[in-house]
């Protein structure tokens, strides 16, 4: 209890100091219309929240991240498991994963828009793309890292191949899968903003881009602030979820 309180107050002080530094910098050191003060940004944020625009952009971006992240994980986990389990699948698929993982999603934005249009299709494609390879690589590495004695013990205890997969390989790989998903989540935030900056009709990236046209610097800051918070909260929620539902798999977060 006290530990939790201590940690919480630590975070609060950390964030408070961040805003203090920002305030001092913008009010005294770098006074410029191009560097708004926190108070001004908060006022704008409130205004944009009340008229509904902020909520709309946030909702659109989060929705894209959610769909792409879940979809990418659902595709990546089984592929990673079979790459890790079967040498033949590894040899067949590794050229794809080893090649494509060096092409960042941001480099594919233009192609995605040409193929899938500027709507949801291209965004979700990019989030899936950025999620799937990290999840595959981590999952496959996890399967190869399962101690052979765990498998041997199961065989001597009378487990079938299918049971070994379900009751040994899968749970033993869980920490790696979850780590892959957590990294993928962070990547999704990067990718969605880049994609919406280039071509979109809504979302936080689009909000930044529109604000640039009218020099609404405080709008840009609102978007940046919200991004930071969203990423932070999403990561904490994911960690909390991991411990709540998968604590016994000893996740390394």
């Amino acid at each position: 209890m006290f530990q939790t309180l201590g940690r919480l107050s630590g975070y609060l002080f950390g964030f408070a100091s961040l805003f203090l530094v920002w305030h001092i910098a913008s009010a005294y050191l770098l006074r410029s219309v191009l560097f708004p003060q926190p108070a001004k940004v908060f006022a704008t944020a409130l205004e944009l929240t009340l008229d509904g625009t902020l909520g709309q952009h946030v909702g659109v971006s989060l929705g894209r991240i959610f769909v792409g992240f879940v979809g990418g994980s659902l595709i990546g986990i089984p592929i990673g498991l079979s790459i890790g389990s079967f040498g033949i699948v590894r040899r067949l698929l590794e050229p794809y994963t080893e090649f494509l993982r060096f092409i960042p999603a941001t480099a594919l934005i233009t192609m995605a828009v040409i193929w899938f249009g500027i709507g949801e299709g291209s965004k979700i494609f990019l989030i899936i793309y950025t999620t799937v390879f990290i999840v595959i690589i981590n999952t496959a590495a996890g399967v190869s890292a399962v101690a052979p004695n765990k498998i041997r013990a199961a065989r001597s205890l009378g487990a079938s191949r299918g049971q070994i997969f379900l009751h040994v390989a899968l749970p033993a790989t869980m920490p790696f899968i979850l780590t892959g998903m957590r990294l993928a989540m962070a990547n999704s935030f990067v990718t969605i903003v880049a994609a919406e900056l280039v071509a979109a009709n809504a979302g936080l990236g689009k909000m930044i881009w529109d604000a640039r046209l009218y020099m609404l610097v405080d709008h840009i800051f609102v978007a940046l602030l919200v991004l930071g918070f969203m990423g932070f909260i999403a990561d904490r929620l994911f960690r909390w979820g991991i411990y709540a539902f998968a604590g016994r798999f000893q996740p390394v977060t």
């Binding site: 004695n149 013990a153 033993a172 869980m174 000893q250």
Partner: peptide, 9 residues
């Protein structure tokens, strides 16, 4: 060694 035990159980 102990690496044959199932840590999640």
């Amino acid at each position: 060694g102990d690496d044959s035990l199932y840590g999640w159980l």
